[in-house]
Design a protein around this nucleic acid. Sequence first.
DNA 1: TTAAACTTTCAATAATTACTGAAACTTCTA
DNA 2: TAGAAGTTTCAGTAATTATTGAAAGTTTAA
Lengths: 181, 181
Amino acid sequence: MQMTPMIKSFVLHFGEMGSRWGINRTVAQIYALLVVTEDMLYADQIAEALTISRGNVSMGIKELQSWRLVKVQHIQGDRKDYYSALGDVWDMARAVFEERRKREIDPTLTVLRDLLLDNPVNEQDHYAQTRIEEIHQLMEMFTVWSDELQRMSPDNLRTLMKMGSGVTKVLNLTNKLSKNA
Amino acid sequence: MQMTPMIKSFVLHFGEMGSRWGINRTVAQIYALLVVTEDMLYADQIAEALTISRGNVSMGIKELQSWRLVKVQHIQGDRKDYYSALGDVWDMARAVFEERRKREIDPTLTVLRDLLLDNPVNEQDHYAQTRIEEIHQLMEMFTVWSDELQRMSPDNLRTLMKMGSGVTKVLNLTNKLSKNA
DNA sequence: TTAAACTTTCAATAATTACTGAAACTTCTA
DNA sequence: TAGAAGTTTCAGTAATTATTGAAAGTTTAA
């Protein structure tokens, strides 16, 4: 399979972007290719398009599956695995948030909480704990937001999207109300 | 300079976390150390605490400066540079968002926009463009949100934080209102 | 069953990324 | 203006991460 120049350009940029966010360049490329391709693809097609080895495709797909980002299907009278990207772009964003949270944020929050329970051995530790507390708060807030994203209906998402900088206006109102309460 | 076990544990975890998000482990460690240390530190102290070379500290600090995450100060009658982390944890989060956006999101948005202006050469390209469009929308939404974060007052931030899952409630209301309009 | 048509695994190796330390550079002060 | 007290740079090297490809594993059909 040959990529059109447009698809190639997209795939390359996506791979580059992934690698800046700590995701293997090839894994990101495989994913980009699947997202942008309507038909399902089998491993050899992916390998040919990205000029990588068959084994590398297998590793990449395995990784993407652990992120729950790809679907596998079979076609009548054909033994090959056919791959495609999960649902719509929102589903993908949700999957990424959820996994990164599970893998990286939650364990860090646990470590931070443990450190906050430790006894400071001196003044430095005491200061450190106040900072760790702040960081903990911040991270917890982000997890709450991402939880909401997970649960949000397409309807609400669309509203949020349209609201754009309206979020601030809503907040200002909320602020005033709670101050007068 | 010796780190207390608490500080050491924090610094190590932070470094690990950074490296999973595409940030050099040592750079993340230097930053963690500065965040959690009340006093300003000079390069040799950092090198000793993290057992890394003087040159590595210099590179790391340079990187952190490009992210506008560290302050440098001088002390009367001392030629050394003294480093410390920027303001409060919110300032730091803002700096990180802003820089990552500038460096990674904005250039990607530009590429996506260019691809959307290109003429599809066939049906595949046509489909690809619909997907690229979705991704573009999604990313643009995130940039709008991060813009708001940048501009948000500490007051609003605190409200957002307290609201937690209240965001959804506010949105539901907004949805109903706009439907009745 | 066997063998064809696949997928997965993993040791060896290639590519990339990070780190060191000495030399070059800068700035201050005597 | 020399040299002391720093910082920065960067070529060489070490460590890590990614990739290949061949062998092992799996599944299906005859």
